[in-house]
């Protein structure tokens, strides 16, 4: 039972990733794209969680933790760059 649900969940997450990617490409402004990148990082954390269930190795969770950390730092850095320097209207 758990295998079937696992595959269904992974399929749903793939759809979510595709949808996020569409918005990443469409996203009219740069902050929109930063939000989408952050959502993709969250999706990757969830993917790693599902994959650790699938493979039975709990060590993958460390990767998820570090990924969440770096994604947050990346969002902060991007926002800082947008606010303090760089382009002031999107191209």
């Amino acid at each position: 039972m758990i295998d079937i649900v696992l595959w269904i969940s992974l399929a749903i997450m793939c759809i979510a990733l595709v949808v996020t990617f569409i918005r990443l490409v469409l996203g009219p402004t740069l902050p929109d794209r930063v939000v989408m990148l952050e959502l993709m990082a969250l999706l990757s954390v969830a993917f790693i969680g599902l994959y650790s269930i699938k493979s039975g190795h709990s060590a993958f969770l460390d990767v998820a933790l570090v990924l969440a950390l770096t994604a947050f730092l990346a969002a902060i850095g991007f926002a800082r760059y947008l606010e303090k320097g760089g382009l002031h209207d999107d191209d």
Binding site: E38, S58, L65, I76, R80, L82, E83
Partner: peptide
């Protein structure tokens, strides 16, 4: 570790939203 990841995400995603909203205003 699962609890740590959950707490970390719940703590940081609103903060990220705040900084991006602010950056969005300035751009």
């Amino acid at each position: 570790r699962a609890v740590a990841i959950t707490l970390f995400i719940m703590l940081t995603s609103p903060v990220a939203a705040h900084v991006i909203a602010r950056a969005g205003y300035f751009t």
